[in-house]
């Protein structure tokens, strides 16, 4: 089920195999493919030459792995030289590398403006959003790896399933059983309350925090910073009402909920949306303790 474009060597062996029973159509397609390959090789050589001649190039070392391609089953680093342009991000450089040198280079990306949360990666030893990380601010060579503490599927793509499971465990959607009186009345939130949860609503589910968390790495059951922040976003939203808040606190005060947080601040340091994750987790801990200290 690989959708990957075959590499050069595989392509030629394919051509040999097909030569056994050539039809007119096959020959034409072969010819077309051959010319395309030639064209590509020519362009690659040209680009590489240009990159080498150009003084302003950046060196990228990119993690490569593909269980379905022989020769890539053993993880390795590939080097790409990319001509630097002002304002270039790590994502730009990766896209250039993919479009110019190796179309099999795989990574997730979509909006390119730090909104979709697809392209969290491990850049020079830190969890970064590739689209909002400036090349000019990095030391060369730039090492680009998939997020740590997650299974690598291919190149820079990791399995996000566990992260999504943890997010869903906190029921990340608005719930309430307290409605305003009038049927067409809006559910209003005070300005103060909106300010309180403002930062927590910014999460884009990129999983950089989860990847940076030393405890989440060891304890697989730990909810993790993103999920707890999501719980905070709703538990602190006064429109949900007291009953739902109790339910939310019961989720986060489980043994592998907030109590596992060791306040290392790793998540807060890496969050591309600057969410004060540790602060939110700590507030939920206090909230849970207070909630349980009610003796009356």
């Amino acid at each position: 089920m690989s959708t990957q474009t075959p590499t050069q060597t595989e392509e030629s062996s394919e051509t040999d195999a097909e030569a056994d029973a050539p039809s007119k159509g096959d020959e034409r397609r072969d010819e077309k493919r051959r010319r395309a390959a030639e064209e590509r090789a020519r362009r690659q050589a040209e680009e590489a030459e240009k990159a080498a001649a150009d003084e302003e190039t950046v060196e990228l070392k990119v993690f490569r792995y593909d269980p379905e391609v022989e020769g890539k089953q053993e993880p390795r680093f590939d080097t790409f030289h990319v001509p630097f342009t002002k304002g270039m991000t790590v994502l730009d450089a990766l896209m250039y590398s993919r479009d110019t040198y190796d179309s099999s280079l795989t990574f997730r990306h979509s909006c390119r403006q730090a909104v979709c949360g697809s392209d969290a990666m491990f850049v020079n030893g830190g969890q970064k959003l590739a689209c909002k990380t400036q090349i000019s601010e990095l030391e060369e060579p730039i090492r680009v790896e998939p997020l740590p503490h997650a299974e690598v599927r291919k190149d820079l793509v990791v399995d996000m399933e566990h992260f999504y499971d943890q997010m869903e465990a906190v029921e990340p959607y608005f719930q309430t059983n307290e409605y305003p009186d009038g049927e067409l009345e809006e559910q209003r939130q005070t300005r103060e309350n909106r300010e309180k949860i403002k930062m927590s609503t910014r999460c884009i589910w990129c999983s950089a925090c989860m990847s940076s968390c030393n405890i989440a790495a060891g304890d697989n059951e730990y909810l993790g910073p993103a999920a707890i922040n999501k719980a905070y976003r709703f538990a602190m939203d006064e429109r949900e009402g007291e009953d739902i808040k109790q339910k939310r606190l019961e989720i986060i005060e489980q043994e592998h909920g907030v109590w596992r947080c060791q306040t290392q601040f790793s998540c807060t340091e890496v969050c591309p949306k600057d969410i004060p994750l540790t602060e939110h987790i700590q507030e939920l801990k206090r909230e849970a303790v207070k909630n349980n200290l009610k003796f009356w």
């Binding site: 379905e68 993880p75 790896e145 740590p148 299974e151 690598v152 790495a217």
Partner: peptide
């Protein structure tokens, strides 16, 4: 799905 690669603890230490 197919295999995946576990990079283990390399990045921790």
């Amino acid at each position: 799905m197919s295999q995946s690669y576990n990079r283990g603890l390399i990045e921790d230490f």
